[in-house]
Nucleic acid binder design. Structure first.
Length: 899
RNA sequence: GGGCGAAUAGCUCAGCCUGGUUUAGAGCGCCUGCCUUACAAGCAGGAGGUCGGGGGUUCGAAUCCCUCUUCGCCCACCA
């Protein structure tokens, strides 16, 4: 036995201590190679790729939730016997990682420019090498059963080759192009961003009305409205709607740009909305996407009034040069005011884009960038959804996905960063040549003229490697065995916020390069928020560290809490100020399981889980087996429907509310020998089987404690583990409605007795007993076996004696406490009568309706004249009413005969 | 401007698609009583709900339809 295994199999401590068993158990799993997906295995594969976390990040609760969901599905499928692959890895996270390292440099008083490109990139690699193990280890701590032999990194050699291959192929197909367009620019990160990377938020802005003098010396003005007056320094025209009669006479004339003095042509363009503002738009082609297009249509100049840091550039008048854009705005307004050109200012809420990495207000900026033409890629990805090859859970996200695909825009993929995949394009430096080389392998010299060449300085958007993840991790572009076996994958689990960034693009890449969907089901988990509904974030300081939670409550408790608390697509609220409030129920449940095992395991004498077991017919045994069977079915169905919170709920209810509360209490006496050896063996066998089965059911959610207990079941060999299944599937004929009904009555009776006792108090015992006696016969019928057991144990013949014995007889006391009390419920009888009355009235009502419906259906006139739908509806109604009637009657009869 | 979602116990949420086995549930919190040989991280009980308002469909509505109110979220180039 391995040392890890030995430690893990140490005696059951008196208290549940997750920290003592989880780490050792995970090591044992790894040693046994339990999570490796063999490429030549025979079973059908089941594949989930991890959404690769940022290589230098630490695990937060969002990961905790997301990765736990993945692990639950993987562990379940693995137990079912599928070749489950949970593929782990990390993302180089271009901007995010570069920002982190830059911040550290700044603390040392340096910038990346001081270091230079090569030294800076080396610095980032150092950082990455230092931290890459951390987040992967944290995944182990929370129990993720990843195939660590297949760990990948988006910037490793193989994936970099895939990125380059994709770029070149798309370029050759004409789907990658370079062009000068307005893109979103982050002046702090000093890079272009994609549309998705600019987050738009409502902003309490102003609308400034400014007068532009006409150039004809008439002294007349045109009034324009703008939210960003500083951009007027880059104006190169004015525009009005072609049908706007108010301004028809000005089209073709010119105006003078205040503060600058440039003459601005006045053009007519349909883009202009005559209803908005004054109906005149200032055109700033270098700073607004719409203005850019107007400029193109009317051949207007472009004047780039800002630098890459969003400071006013050399082309603006001296007074504004070098000013930050917001300072420039203030200055422009002051100057306009002074010249009496500012007509008025009104409140105007509008949305402003922010950098998704640093939250700086993005600047629409004209620049030369690389783009991917998306329309052709979107078509098969959209068709896959429409044809049902790609399903979303919850379904509504499918419509969001389709909507995005239908309105797809080209993807700006170049980033002016240093950390990432360098764009595989070279430019010839020879004066007359101008050759551009796009190549899979680095060229040495210009193939056209043999002159010196220079590589494009930009890197690719981080998502340009992420979108290849489902196949680049399997060796693509090589046609590897892994690729053949594990692509396409099955289920993708991620947060809704990266639906467009990642999920949609992966589908597109899947079709473009593998000619198939990368996965068939997409699960979107919600966001983890605090108790006030705020997203957890470092800056708010409301995050919960999963490592701290694991340390205090155990990984099982955390996983259970997350799974139970977050149905798909709904946000999870956790109180960061009071971890106990959030995680105690999970920990308590684990503790309950632990204690049930502490009780049960030593009482399983003679049981050998490796051999067939014999099961008795005693009520309690039949009942718990029936309940187990139903729970198994329900849990499996819930897993198939991705309703994991339901799985948690079902297991919790069964284990605590049925197995512990009732079954264990009912068989205590028998396990001590009160019913004889045969009864003891019967109880032990059912107990062992049922407990092992629910440990298995719960294993995907709470892997540690369940496997730890299962391996201690009598007869289990050293290597025994439930990690590889089987998935519990008891005999279908264990479903036993009779036993469940009888047990239901027992529970009802006991409940009623308890209520009675509470009401009368112990002093009125004689009164209770007298009333109870009158109904003893019924109880005997229903619970003959249990009655005998209890009598044997308590050594009493009458109920009265039992009551009396309770005081001084420990055995009897235990029985009373345990819930096998033998009182016929007076209140129960009364309640049953009341119930009977209710049902009788219901029966009358239903039969009345049934009679009327039947009369209608017997009416020839109705049959002849009624439209088909009406007729069908009536027939339907008749059928359902008849069924209902029978059900009620039977229930009523059963009640009557029982009373 | 489009699209989507939510509103059920003091709090966080299930249940709704496929109407009737639910007397509308769970966990937490609250109240009462218990250290009872697996478990006080527990056990036994209890209080607390006009299922957001209104209307409709139906024999029957938390569940289906319409509408209103209040909160969220996503997308979008109206300066």
């Amino acid at each position: 036995m391995s040392p890890a295994r030995a430690a893990e199999r140490a005696e059951l401590a008196s208290r549940y201590d997750p920290s003592g068993l989880e780490g050792a158990l995970y090591e044992a799993w790894k040693e046994a190679g339990a999570f490796h997906a063999h490429v030549d295995a025979l079973e059908d594969p089941y594949v989930i790729v991890i959404p690769p976390p940022n290589v230098t990040a630490e695990l937060h609760m969002g990961h905790g939730l997301n990765n736990t969901i993945q692990d639950v599905l993987i562990r379940w499928r693995r137990m079912q016997g599928l070749g489950a692959l949970y593929l782990p890895g990390t993302d180089h996270a271009g901007i995010a990682t570069q920002n982190v390292v830059e911040r550290h440099l700044a603390a040392e008083g340096e910038t990346r420019f001081d270091l230079g490109r090569d030294a800076f990139v080396e610095r980032v690699w150092e950082w990455v090498r230092k931290y890459e193990k951390r987040i992967l280890h944290q995944l182990e701590v929370i129990g993720c059963s990843c195939d660590w032999e297949r760990t990948r990194f988006t910037l490793d050699e193989g994936l970099s080759r895939a990125v380059r291959e994709v770029f070149v192929r798309l370029y050759e197909k004409g789907l990658v192009y370079r062009g000068r367009y307005i893109i979103n620019w982050c002046p702090r990160c000093r890079t272009a961003l994609s549309n998705e990377e600019a987050e738009h938020r409502e902003h309490a802005g102003k609308l400034y009305h400014i007068r532009y003098p006409l150039a004809d010396d008439s002294g007349r003005f045109l009034e324009v409205a703008t939210t960003r007056p500083e951009t007027m320094l880059g104006d190169t025209g004015l525009a009005v709607h072609p049908d706007d009669e108010r301004y028809a006479e000005f089209v073709g004339q010119e105006a003078i740009l205040p503060l600058v003095g440039r003459t601005l042509p006045i053009v007519a363009d349909v883009y202009v909305d005559p209803e908005f503002g004054s109906g005149v738009v200032k055109v700033t082609p270098a700073h607004d996407p719409n203005d850019f297009e107007i400029g193109q249509r009317h051949d207007l100049e472009t004047v780039d009034a800002m630098t890459d840091a969003a400071e006013m550039s050399e082309v603006v008048p001296q007074a504004y040069r070098g000013l930050d854009r917001f300072d420039a705005r203030a200055r422009v307004l002051v100057d306009l005011e002074r010249e009496n050109l500012l007509v008025r200012v009104e409140d105007h809420p509008h949305s402003v884009g922010h950098c998704y990495r640093c939250d700086t207000v993005v600047e629409p900026r004209l620049s030369l960038q690389w783009f991917v033409k998306m329309q052709p890629l979107a078509e098969p990805a959209l068709a896959a959804y429409r044809e049902g090859k790609l399903r979303f859970h919850p379904e509504r996200y499918g419509r969001v996905y389709a909507n995005w695909m239908e309105n797809i825009r080209d993807w700006c993929i170049s980033r002016q960063l240093w950390w990432g995949h360098r764009i595989p394009v070279w430019y010839c430096k020879a004066d007359e040549c101008g050759e551009m080389i796009v190549a899979r392998d680095d060229p040495e010299v210009c193939p056209a003229c043999g002159g010196p060449i220079e590589q494009d300085t930009d890197v690719l958007d981080t998502w340009f490697s992420s979108w290849l993840w489902p196949f680049s991790t399997l060796g693509w572009p090589d046609q590897t065995e892994e690729l053949a076996r594990f692509y396409p994958g099955d289920t993708l689990v991620t947060a809704d916020e990266i639906l467009f960034f990642w999920v949609a693009r992966m589908v597109m890449a899947g079709y473009e390069f593998m000619d198939d969907v990368p996965f068939t089901d997409v699960l979107l988990n919600g966001t983890v928020r605090d108790h006030l509904g705020r997203r957890m974030s470092k800056s708010l300081g409301n995050g919960i560290d999963p490592m701290e939670v694991v340390e205090r409550y155990g990984a099982d408790a955390m996983r259970f809490t997350l799974i139970r608390g977050a149905p798909l697509g709904t946000d999870l609220h956790l109180n960061h100020e009071d971890l106990d409030k959030a995680f105690r129920p999970g920990r308590n449940f684990a503790n309950k399981i632990w204690n049930a095992a502490r009780f049960a395991l030593p009482r399983l004498e003679g049981v050998d889980v490796t051999e067939d077991m014999t099961f008795s017919d005693e009520l309690a045994d039949r009942w718990i087996r029936s309940r187990l069977r139903r729970t198994e079915t329900a849990v499996t169905e819930a897993l198939e429907g991705f309703r994991l919170h339901e799985v948690a709920e079902l297991c919790h209810g069964f284990v605590w509310g049925e197995f512990c509360d009732w079954y264990l209490e009912l068989v205590k006496a028998r396990l001590e020998g009160a019913g004889g050896e045969e009864s003891r063996r019967g109880a032990a066998h059912t107990l062992a089987h049922v407990m092992l089965a629910w440990l298995e059911l719960l294993h995907p959610i709470m892997p540690f404690i369940t496997d730890a207990i299962a391996s201690r079941v009598p007869g289990a060999p050293d290597s025994f583990s439930i990690v590889n299944g089987p998935w519990p599937d008891s005999h279908a004929d264990w479903e036993d409605p009779e036993a469940e009904e009888a047990m239901g009555e027992l529970q009802e009776l006991i409940g009623a007795v308890r209520a009675l006792r509470a009401e009368y108090g112990v002093d009125q015992r004689a009164e209770i007993v007298a009333r109870v006696r009158a109904h003893t016969n019924r109880l005997e019928d229903v619970l003959a076996t249990e009655v005998d057991n209890v009598r044997r144990l308590a050594g009493v013949e009458s109920i009265e004696a039992l009551e009396g014995a309770a005081e001084d007889e420990p055995g009897a006391h235990a029985v009373l406490r345990s819930g096998t009390e033998l009182f016929v419920p007076l209140r129960g009888v009364i309640d049953l009568d009341r119930e009977g009355e209710r049902i009788r009235r219901e029966v009358e009502r239903v039969s009345d309706l049934l009679a009327r419906t039947r009369a209608k259906l017997a009416n020839e006139g109705f049959l002849a004249n009624a439209p088909k739908e009406v007729l069908d509806r009536e027939k339907d109604k008749e059928r359902s009413l008849a069924e209902q009637h029978d059900r009620l009657e039977e229930k009523y009869r059963a009640l009557r005969s029982g009373t």
